[in-house]
Amino acid sequence: MLPPLPESAIRLGAAATDWQDAVRLCGAALRDSGATTDAYTERMISVIEEFGAYVVIAPGFALAHARPGSDVMTDGLAVVTLAEPVRFGHPHNDPVSVIIGLAVTTTDEHVGAVATLANVFNDGAVIPALAAASDDETVRELLGYTS
């Protein structure tokens, strides 16, 4: 039930100077996969500027996202891992080394994708394994994509 995860949507061991940079990497990956435009990236950053680092929902892990909008072409998922983790400002879960970007066209459609993500990440071993993944195939396997 997850959106497709093409090579263009995966960035492993990337360099980011701060959380904005990390979210921009995620937005660029969503854009390059054809899911969004750069406007969506800026909206993902705005959500965090407005409401704080609540997107950091588990230790070391952020789910970057914004509401559906005209800057979402199709449902998309992106995976970014950082060579050096960055702080988002969360009181317990910083620093972050794994960021998943999610873009959905309608609020109804995201429920299936989110349920799948919850099932995957309820296994506490997945976040550190993603952080350490060195190739796209490992990422796809960890997220439950079957090739």
């Binding site: 407005e50 409401f51 997107v55 929902i57 996202h65 509401r67 559906p68 429920v111 989110v114």
Partner: peptide, 9 residues
Amino acid sequence: GAGIGTSAI
């Protein structure tokens, strides 16, 4: 914050 994603999880 956005009503999708994290609150659904």
